[in-house]
Nucleic acid binder design. Sequence first.
DNA 1: TATCAGTTTAGAACGATTCTAATGTATTGA
DNA 2: TCAATACATTAGAATCGTTCTAAACTGATA
Lengths: 130, 130
Amino acid sequence: MKDIKHFLRQNSLRPTKQRVIIANYLFDGVNKHVTAETLSNKLLKMKAGISLATIYNTLHDFYEKGLLKKLMINSERVYFDTNTEHHHHFYSKKDQKLIDINVDMKVSGLPKPPKNKKINKIEVLVHLDN
Amino acid sequence: MKDIKHFLRQNSLRPTKQRVIIANYLFDGVNKHVTAETLSNKLLKMKAGISLATIYNTLHDFYEKGLLKKLMINSERVYFDTNTEHHHHFYSKKDQKLIDINVDMKVSGLPKPPKNKKINKIEVLVHLDN
DNA sequence: TATCAGTTTAGAACGATTCTAATGTATTGA
DNA sequence: TCAATACATTAGAATCGTTCTAAACTGATA
Ligand SMILES: [Mn+2]
Ligand SMILES: [Mn+2]
Ligand SMILES: [Zn+2]
Ligand SMILES: [Zn+2]
């Protein structure tokens, strides 16, 4: 992501100082799973104090533009995923960490969905012990 | 569940009035997915006003005795499942409803878990559109 | 039936998230 | 270039599901 400002404009997002900092971090080429809190901590370490309100706003703005995926695997916090391809996860509750499963997995033996309902997507979550 | 009092005692739970009412409803032979709120509403309709604190306490007590499974598929509320067998779900976000998938499903192509980690369980969640 | 550990309860506290409304800034068109 | 304006940022309040607290209550036991 060389020109983040251009990238943001392409996605109908004004390249404000805060968005540039956050986008530079999130879209550096390494897929990430962040929460508002982990992102805030990371930005503080980078000496970029951005208010929590802006962090929430920005994550949602990026999500609405399709730049992030939202993962709701846990009732205490929302994860945002920079990998927007359909994929699955390993999840360690102990570490509160997600790891992408990008390989092609198949789910067989799936029954028909209930009447008048259509399958949107299938999510496999592999819980790790330790 | 004929004798709920006996059932509760067998599980090291005192058969108090509130627990008997809740257990009678939850373990009537029909599997259910409840949240504290849906359970509270159901009990109100049955003219059994039980405080929310007791509902949360009781759900957690039953969970700790292995009588309920806890499902965290959604960041806004916790579901408790009376089906404690390993199984999967259809989920309709619109209806906020879960439907059990009891048939034998297989997930193939799963990669090895990360070093020093062991797979605890695999959960398949099938999101429905409407 | 007295005792007491366990239970229930209302309401306070908590924590993630959203909202509010005041202030600041990117964009644009004269 | 530079106001005018629309959009963005922010601190702090509000919200909402859930947990905690501490006082009143009750089931189990002897
Ligand atoms: Mn968070
Ligand atoms: Mn609930
Ligand atoms: Zn991912
Ligand atoms: Zn179920």
